[in-house]
Amino acid sequence: MLTIEALQAQGVNTEEGLARCLNNEGFYLNLVGKALEDDNFDQLAPAVNSGDLKKGFEIAHSLKGVLGNLALTPLYEAVAEITELLRAETQTDYAPYLEKIEQAHASFLQLRDAE
């Protein structure tokens, strides 16, 4: 279950994220829940792996915006890293970066689904 304390323990800057939501916890936690279900998480790896770096950038950039605003720091940092590489259309092995995002995303989903 998503709680402020649990998110804090996960490294989320809840103070910042809550402030953007006018300190309305319910509203904030609801948005975090929605962000974790963002389709972009599923679309990022296929786009990058198919070599469409432009599309990959758009997806990563969108995610980054949302994660940043909710201050989901570990996820945000991972996405921000790949966003900059994709923005520059850097030719590199993206697997480790995608993996990092995948892991961070998974740990948040785990948190959500825990009792």
Partner: peptide, 16 residues
């Protein structure tokens, strides 16, 4: 704003 979550954050803020 194309991201629904960002729209919600801003909307909530500005609706004040």
């Amino acid at each position: 704003e194309d991201e629904m979550i960002n729209r919600e954050i801003l909307g909530n803020l500005l609706a004040q």
